[in-house]
């Protein structure tokens, strides 16, 4: 019985934010010219990741809303580093979350500052790691990779065609041309007004992501009901133990980044500042509910890498703070 209550509580809390994310994603799709956007974004992976992680200021979404937007960015051909940077940083680096953390820790401003700093650093590092793979197709969930709007040919200009992957045909002058370069872009409207497309796109994304949210929430509620918190808290002995316990808790409780700082506060008396930071940094990046959503973008292996990298970095940062802070 309490399973259903928790399950619906998660869904009801997340649904408005998911809708907001889907709205922003549809606006991006229809109103922003992807060609211009991509041309403006730096190719340099570090800069790209930095800019991507600052997109959170433009799209203030939490971890249920960032997935549709990140997905749209990737589909529009934004470099992987920027999109991953956005995916990881947006739930933390946005005005609402910064404000709520500020309110929750009025006497510990360093928590606010370090939360931003650590999340930024993690997003940028992971963004750079992923930029090694310039063509996002192998990372993406199979069906999604077929939907990529702009094949990432920009980086490939100047590379001899012999060294490039893909399908080529001979053009009139006898030189090979990549198929992707000559396919005309899909016309935007097909018998439907802009508004109609907008609604269609929202409906489609809501359907896809809503289904994942339902599954993610079910798993999270299940864990809440059947795994006592005491077990996690009893592991929390010493500096390392408490950091690991708080990270585990962050992944398990699946609460929105806009309110997780309030939740973290209830542990403020029992846990070290380092482990609270670990909770605040790791929680928005990965939680069970969001893994369901992320499965709609990436292949499972990629999520595993993201997860492992983010966990290790969070751990190292939090530990570093505990010893040197």
């Amino acid at each position: 019985m309490s399973f259903f209550t928790l399950f619906f509580s998660l869904l009801v809390e997340a649904m408005p934010f998911l809708l907001l994310g889907v709205f922003l994603s549809s606006v991006l799709l229809l109103l922003i010219d992807e060609g211009k956007l991509i041309a403006k974004l730096p190719r340099n992976p570090i800069l790209g990741a930095i800019i991507g992680s600052c997109f959170g200021f433009l799209f203030p979404v939490c971890e249920c809303g960032n997935v549709p937007v990140a997905r749209r960015l990737l589909l529009q051909g934004v470099p992987t580093s920027s999109a991953v940077g956005f995916l990881l940083a947006a739930p933390t680096i946005n005005p609402i979350v910064i404000w709520s953390t500020w309110v929750a820790f009025p006497n510990q401003k360093e928590i606010v500052l370090l939360r931003i700093l650590f999340s930024m650093a993690i997003a940028i590092i992971i963004g750079c790691v992923f930029s090694v793979q310039q063509n996002p197709q192998p990372l993406l969930q199979k069906m999604l990779s077929k939907r990529l709007r702009v094949p990432q040919q920009l980086e490939q200009k100047g590379i001899p065609t012999l060294l490039r992957g893909g399908t080529f045909i001979l053009s009139g002058e006898g030189s090979p041309v990549a198929m992707t370069e000559i396919i005309p872009p899909t016309p935007r409207s097909k018998g439907m007004s802009l508004g109609g497309q907008f609604v269609s796109n929202i409906a489609q994304e809501l359907r896809e992501l809503g289904g994942m949210l339902v599954i993610g929430s079910a798993v999270a509620a299940f864990i809440q009901v059947f795994v006592p918190r005491e077990i996690i808290l009893s592991v929390a002995q010493g500096t390392i133990g408490s950091i690991l316990a708080m990270m585990l808790l962050a992944a398990l409780v699946s609460i929105c980044s806009t309110v997780d700082s309030f939740f973290a506060l209830s542990f403020a008396s029992t846990f070290t500042t380092g482990s609270l930071l670990a909770f605040l940094v790791f929680g928005p990046i990965i939680d069970i509910k969001a893994i369901g959503l992320m499965l709609s973008i990436f292949r499972p292996r990629v999520i595993l890498y993201l997860f492992a990298l983010a966990a290790q970095l969070t751990f190292i940062f939090a530990l570093g703070y505990s010893y040197f802070g």
Partner: peptide, 28 residues
């Protein structure tokens, strides 16, 4: 019916996700 270009491209077979959403809503 001129549906929007991008469709039937989900993790689940088409219809499952909507079905899940409808089912959950009815349960609620």
């Amino acid at each position: 019916v001129s549906q929007f270009q991008e469709k039937h491209l989900t993790l689940f077979p088409p219809g499952y996700s909507s079905g899940l959403l409808v089912g959950t809503a009815i349960l609620g």
